[in-house]
Design a protein around this nucleic acid. Structure first.
Length: 550
RNA sequence: UGGGGCGUCGCCAAGCGGUAAGGCACCGGAUUUUGAUUCCGGCAUUCGCAGGUUCGAUCCCUGCCGCCCCAGCCA
């Protein structure tokens, strides 16, 4: 699947670690918190972690970082597993949960207390904040900082036994309240939380904090390279401190820049809000930047993988244009999608010199791949073409239909527009045309050139299908910069319309993606489409240089 | 103004002391029964700025400038 890997700073580090003998193999992990659905930003991390493991013949674990029962749910665990699998990655036997390590983590906390490296603090959250200092002022020691080991042990035990309400005490690592790195100013490592955990139920009422859990989880799994995003750079000294104090296997944490995509938001909080406040249908709404939304939209997994490969990985804050993703989608779909014809905004055409009969024309399913075979298209005297393909007073650069002009009907004849029929409002409602019946499958014998080619359907045979046209969810390039990102939602992100399609479209199955020639790629909606009432989602438009010329 | 990072073409991004890969975008042109696809060609005398070391610097040193992150009992 992948050929020459692109060099990047992470591979460089791994190469050095392997060369120096610091590690003998490569073990990575993708560690989502099950508090929401995966999005395209997670895809970058998944492709990176699983890709690196595959490239170095190592392994990659899927580990749920479920240390905060207040926000996490089983539903998310299942959705995440589905998405990672769909993206094409396999964790094999290596499925883990932070919650499986709770007992070990608790023992390690006790060990730290015994070593005089952790203490129970009984300040309130407000007092702790006040004593933490600021970016420019050092913090001050907690009055509880010098409690005896015995007292700490006893209090921590009682915390575990549920003898205190939430927030009454907290276990802190004893490091340095004056450290310029805020994360080292005696970070909280265990808090009291009387909450039901989706996997451990009511067994625990104290839960480890991220900093006290993540590195140890990596260590237990013998992870060699723990890849995370830039904001954890400041946590690395803490990460290293814990594994050093505990004397356990030390993985190397490496930070990279998370993905930012134009015209979309990536924070789970905001995505959750879009769902709960019904700005979109659901987590898998085709407008969502979630993996499940993109899947439903018709984006192939390979396109997402190619995209992640293409954007690279670095440490600088990057901003990727949505068009890069869309190009990746077209790249895959162009090769795989069968072609069909459908008219979105119909304009009637009558071929006046064509007899009252039905002809069966042959059309290739894919112009560049004859092995995909042909399909049959019914052709008759009355057709529909796209309104956009006719102009009453066309400019010179427009080479579609106009009064007296000729155009090729794709896979059929060349026609000339003789008359334009309008209704009482002056609206063009019908075109009277003549077909050159000698041009089926060949160019005019007299050598005249007809540059325009338009798509069409036979009026009597066309099938009506529901079509959903999706556009970017936000109107502003960076919705996070708006005062309120909800204010810049694109009101036209979804347009529902009926299209008239060639009969062959009805044989498409759920999940199939087809190209409506000259219009775009469309897939059968996995939720709402039925044989009786088909629903197609527009995956992405075709590139349209004419639109730019206009 | 404490600490941690980052600054190479419009957007990503290679490069690791020997004289600027690649992709996307863009601009030409060819083929084409999708104004699609495909195909050719063009596209940074220059690497945030200023000094210094060196025969030679985007790569090393110094000083500026700009941007991002950190004061959750979130991850």
């Amino acid at each position: 699947m992948s050929q020459e890997p692109v060099s990047n700073f992470i591979r460089t580090i791994i190469d050095e670690d392997l060369a120096s003998g610091r590690y003998q193999q490569v073990v990575t992990r993708f560690p989502p918190e099950p508090n929401g659905y995966l999005h395209i930003g997670h895809a970058k991390s998944i492709c990176l972690n699983f890709g690196l493991a595959a490239s170095y013949s190592g392994r990659c674990h899927l580990r749920f970082d479920d240390t905060n029962p207040a926000k996490e749910e089983q539903e998310y665990v299942e959705a995440i597993k589905t998405d990672v699998r769909w993206l094409g990655f396999d964790w094999g036997e290596h499925l883990y949960f932070a919650s499986d390590y709770f007992e070990q983590l608790y023992q390690w906390a006790v060990q730290l207390i015994e070593a005089g490296k952790a203490y129970v603090d009984s300040q309130s959250a407000d007092e702790m904040r006040a004593n933490r200092g600021s970016l420019t002022e050092p913090g001050v020691d907690s009055p509880y900082r010098e409690r005896s080991v015995a007292e700490n042990l006893e209090l921590f035990e009682r915390m575990k036994n549920g003898e205190f309400p939430d927030g009454k005490h907290v276990l802190r690592a004893k490091i340095d309240m004056k450290s310029p790195n805020m994360n080292l100013r005696d970070p909280a490592i265990y808090r009291i939380l009387h909450a039901r955990h989706h996997r451990t139920g009511d067994r625990w009422c104290i839960y480890p904090m991220y900093d006290f859990a993540h590195g140890q989880e990596d260590s237990l799994e013998k992870v060699t390279h723990s890849i995370c995003t830039l904001e954890f750079e400041d946590h690395r000294p803490l990460y290293d401190w814990f594994v050093a104090q505990l004397g356990i296997h030390a993985p190397q944490q490496i930070e990279f820049a998370r993905l930012n995509l134009s015209y979309t938001v990536m924070s789970k909080r905001k995505l959750l809000q879009l769902v709960t406040e019904q700005h979109v249908e659901s987590w898998d709404d085709p407008r969502m930047p979630t993996i499940s939304g993109m899947r439903r939209r018709g984006y192939p997994a390979a396109a997402i993988r190619n995209f992640c490969e293409k954007i690279g990985v670095g440490k600088g804050y990057s901003w990727i244009d949505l068009s890069v993703l869309e190009e990746s989608v077209r790249e895959v779909l162009n090769k795989t999608a069968q072609r069909r014809m459908a008219v979105l905004q119909p304009l009637k055409v009558v071929i006046t010199n064509y007899p009252d009969q039905v002809e069966e024309l042959q059309a290739p399913n894919h112009p560049q791949q004859p092995e995909l075979g042909n399909r049959t298209l019914p052709f008759s005297r009355e057709l529909y073409i796209e309104q956009d393909d006719f102009m009453e007073d066309p400019p010179k650069k427009f080479f579609r239909l106009g009064p007296g002009r000729e155009v090729r009907l794709r896979n059929a004849y060349i026609i000339r527009c003789d008359d334009v029929i309008k209704d009482e409002h002056g609206q063009v409602v019908e075109l009277r045309c003549t077909a050159d019946l000698e041009t089926l499958g060949k160019n005019p014998a007299d050598g005249r050139k007809v540059k325009g080619i338009i798509h069409w359907v036979s009026a009597a045979h066309a099938k009506s299908v529901k079509v959903r046209l999706y556009d970017r969810l936000f109107n502003q390039e960076n919705p996070d910069k708006a005062d309120d990102y909800l204010q810049v939602l694109n009101p036209d992100s979804l347009q529902v319309t009926e299209a008239l399609a060639e009969p062959n479209l009805l044989t498409a199955c759920s999940g199939d993606t087809l190209q409506f020639e000259r219009v775009g790629y469309f897939c059968v909606d996995s939720q709402d489409s039925t044989a009786a009432a088909p629903v197609f989602n527009r995956t992405v438009t075709l590139r349209d240089t004419w639109a730019k010329v206009k």
